[in-house]
């Protein structure tokens, strides 16, 4: 396998980065990077970590070409080399991380997650009303990994606050079974993209065909998170198997309306990407734009109800007159 950290990788321009991922030989993972400057979304760090841990588990070779980019210190500070057990040779003076970022973390159980959520907010120095949606996103995404992914390394999480744009960017990645596999038992998605669309539809969960879910799962988590990005007019991206669904930024002159069918949203998608064993989720949240969380819940309530009615209606049997 080969992956190249290019000059700039954010959700908006992540497609070429994913396309360049070469999955052909899983006996070795070769990681290379742009020689001058590498500037990436936290989800990219999570993906590299996920691949590195995957290759280590397979006892295959991990070859991480020495980074030359001026920005290489960032990768050291975010804990990429440490988590992969590599000596980068990069010397840094670690600053206090509060107010800027959450370095790469592996979250493997409920208790880890509780601790992480407690520690995370002071690290980002956010106001309580700003912290609320972020805690929500992390909790729901990480619990999805615990409950559905069967991921040996748990959830790989990383986040960064960008002062200039007042935006927090979050990545949550796993190298588990992937969304199509999770939905296979009850929904038989025809391909990975169809699986992503189902996973983003309110009321659909991998644990039952019943609309509304089971006692443990309602099938609402990803829809809530996509809705947060939509209302904040920010990006949301999910990549699993060979497919990626990307919610595009809602234009400022258009009313941000929640829609239960993800395929009717303002989105882009790809269905034939290099295969990702597991699931990758990334979200940007501009804290200027974040709607009051309670107002968002009102909108979600309305759309969730309508979406669920549509799902139920689709299953109504009609008499067959012959």
């Amino acid at each position: 396998m080969k992956i190249h950290l290019s000059n700039s990788v954010w959700i908006g321009n992540i497609d070429p980065f994913i396309h360049s991922f070469d999955t052909s030989n899983d006996k070795i993972l070769e990681i290379t990077s742009h020689k001058k400057w590498v500037s990436v979304h936290p989800v990219v760090l999570c993906m590299i970590t996920g691949l590195g841990l995957f290759i280590r588990r397979k006892k295959a070779e991990l070859s991480f070409e020495k980074m030359e980019a001026t920005s290489r210190h960032y990768f050291e500070r975010m804990g990429l080399f440490k988590i992969l057990g590599l000596d980068s040779g990069i010397k840094i003076t670690p600053h206090e991380s509060a107010g800027r970022f959450i370095p790469l973390q592996l979250i493997t159980n409920s208790s880890n997650l509780d601790d992480f959520i407690c520690e995370m907010i002071p690290m980002l120095h956010l106001q309580p009303e700003q912290a609320e949606p972020i805690k929500y996103i992390i909790s729901e995404l990480v619990r999805n990994v615990f409950e559905h992914a069967s991921a040996p390394d748990g959830a790989i999480v990383c986040a960064q606050y960008y002062k200039k744009s007042n935006t927090i960017r979050i990545g949550v990645v796993d190298t588990g079974v992937g969304i199509r596999h999770t939905l296979e038992r009850f929904y038989h998605p025809k391909d990975d993209l169809n699986a992503l669309a189902l996973a983003l539809t309110p009321g659909i969960t991998g644990t039952t065909t019943k609309i509304g879910g089971t006692e443990a799962n309602a099938g609402a988590g990803l829809f809530f998170i996509k809705s947060l990005a939509k209302i904040s007019r920010d990006f949301f991206m999910i990549y699993s198997g060979k497919a990626m669904y990307k919610l595009l930024k809602n234009p400022k002159n258009k009313q941000a309306k929640l829609i239960s069918d993800p395929l009717k949203d303002h989105f882009s998608s790809e269905a034939n990407l290099p295969f990702w064993n597991g699931t990758v989720v990334a979200i940007d949240l501009c804290l200027n734009n974040t709607l009051n969380f309670n107002e968002l819940l009102d909108l979600i309530r309305k759309v969730y109800r309508e979406g669920r009615k549509q799902q139920t209606k689709l299953r109504y049997k009609k008499p067959q007159f012959i």
Binding site: E132, G203, K210, I211, G212, A218, F293, N294, L297, D298, I300, R301, Y304, R305, R308, K309, T312
Partner: peptide, 18 residues
């Protein structure tokens, strides 16, 4: 809190639908 009230309302509402 208002947030918790709204979340409880969402859950109870969709449980009544089904």
């Amino acid at each position: 809190s208002d947030t918790i009230k709204k979340i409880i309302e969402i859950v109870i509402e969709y449980m009544q639908d089904h």
